[in-house]
Write a protein that binds this DNA or RNA. Structure first.
Lengths: 220, 220
DNA sequence: AGATTTATTTTGACTAATCAAAATCACGAT
DNA sequence: ATCGTGATTTTGATTAGTCAAAATAAATCT
């Protein structure tokens, strides 16, 4: 069995490669895992030996099919656990990421399946992130963000891509939750300012960086 | 935070001391944790430094108040998780111990409390073992067993003290579950044989060792 | 008491995961 | 073609937890 350290390396590689095939730079991995770059090099070499990744020295690292399989399973656990914590235990939306971080490594496949059934096989977690299927299929649709979408059009929020408690708190405070409808009324690249409005609400100003963390799709 | 290794050491000390004050022999701990005795010595000295235990060289080890507090919390997590797995996820009675072994170290106090509420504050886990209260109170009543009880009297099963999957399987197969009523019809110390009978059932023979693992109390 | 058995402790070594800091490489700019 | 910069890799150490096997202490049995 993979240790939880290994599971974390693989999971973050998956997240950093957007579910795709790109090489993940060692530095980005180090950043995401909060370890120094040298540690990542060492670990990645071990992971290459065990067949989980392909290491291109001085370039980066890529998941193998096997590594991807493991990573998807961990991600599935993480996101289903988040669903459980929010939907069943009614926990705070912003706090569950930290909890799931631990539980994703402790939960068995058996428990996972039953949890999935209990929750009614959800397709996304409470932040709107897609849950990999048991077969390892991950819906990685490309969405627009509040920083890139068309102006003055009604949009449905589908996902918040910053999992930090602070950002999630901010999102809750301003009702920017998956499912809600918003409209960007103004966007000024020069000043880096985006103004969004919920149907009946007052306009809300946010920076481009923040706006880019909120994924949207046209309302059907 | 205590590592899960530390949590396991403390939990097993608590279990081996029957919730009490007795010194636990190093060998017994090694056995329970499936490590060699030398490892226990090393670890126990570290635990003594951190104030979790008191080490009496060549005699054994005992939990301090702080160690006991941690151990009770872990045990509470273990048993509440078992309840959840059986009552909510409908998992196999005999399999949940292994699962809970992992989860007890990954679950936060916050999640624990909500789980407790969701389950309606149960007092015992599915095997009949008492669940420590949040304040760290553990009901450690002394019960009779099928090996020690009076003969020909109706008794309620309250607990199965062997958590191994094999034994639990056997218990399920023969309907020896907590809550069920049985009567010991015969007990022969010489041959080491105990014969028990469920109200309407055929007599069942079991060895003294096995009988001693089934705790009972008089039917009220 | 003296000898033997049994439990415990010590010693030396190993693995997984990490860091700090020095060495190396690759790439764009001169 | 060389230089400098930034990313990556190496090297040497450290910590937690473990084992094997030798050393020691305590208990038991003549």
């Amino acid at each position: 069995m993979a240790t939880s350290t290994v599971e974390n390396y693989l999971k973050h590689m998956l997240l950093l490669s957007e579910g795709g095939e790109e090489l993940v730079p060692m530095g980005a991995l180090a950043e995401a895992l909060a370890v120094v770059p040298g540690t990542v090099t060492t670990m990645v070499k071990a992971l290459a030996d065990s067949g989980h990744v392909e290491h291109r020295p001085r370039q980066g690292v890529r998941l193998t099919a096997e590594g991807r399989r493991v990573a998807l399973n961990v991600l599935r656990k993480h996101r289903l656990v988040e669903c459980f914590l929010v939907n069943v235990l009614k926990m705070d939306w912003a706090a569950v990421d930290t909890e799931a971080e631990q539980l994703e490594h402790a939960i068995s496949d058996e428990v996972l399946d039953r949890l999935d059934a209990l929750l009614g096989h959800p397709e996304t977690d409470p932040h709107g992130d897609p849950i990999p299927s048991r077969q390892g299929k991950l819906d990685s649709q490309v969405y627009a963000t509040l920083a890139t979408c068309v102006v003055e059009k009604a949009l449905r929020i589908v996902r918040i891509t910053d999992q930090s408690a602070e950002f999630l708190q901010f999102a809750v405070q301003n009702g920017l939750l998956p499912g809600e409808t918003v409209r960007v009324t103004e966007r000024n690249l020069a000043s880096g300012l985006v103004t969004a409005k919920k149907n009946a609400g007052r306009p809300l100003a946010l920076g481009l960086a923040a706006a880019g963390k909120i994924l949207v799709q046209p309302t059907r």
